[in-house]
């Protein structure tokens, strides 16, 4: 199944791109997506404790089971306003 991943702000810079398309043969979670991104960009790893996860534009859990074509976002601490 395919999962679209979005990265923002410091996470986007650490990954080097604003999004990624991942493919899984087995059930996947946001945590598994993040691990895949870390293989490509190991310095993302250090950000993990500060990040929140969203699935389909809603805050979600790292271990939530994903469905095909879900959109996962990794969200650094926000600073709008």
């Amino acid at each position: 199944m395919r999962i679209r991943v979005l990265l923002f702000a410091r996470a986007r810079e650490a990954y080097g791109k604003p999004e990624a398309a991942l493919r899984f043969d087995q059930p996947a979670t946001p945590a598994a997506c993040f691990e895949q991104l870390c293989v490509e960009a190991p310095r993302l790893e250090a950000l993990r404790p500060s990040l929140l996860v969203a699935v389909n534009e809603r805050y979600a859990e790292w271990e939530q089971e994903l469905l095909a074509d879900d959109e996962v976002a990794f969200i650094p601490p926000v600073s709008g306003g």
Binding site: F8, A9, R10, A54, Y59, A73, I75, P76, V78, S79, G80, G81
Partner: peptide, 8 residues
């Protein structure tokens, strides 16, 4: 907004 809305 300052703690939840995803803007940086």
């Amino acid at each position: 907004l300052k703690v939840r809305v995803p803007v940086w």
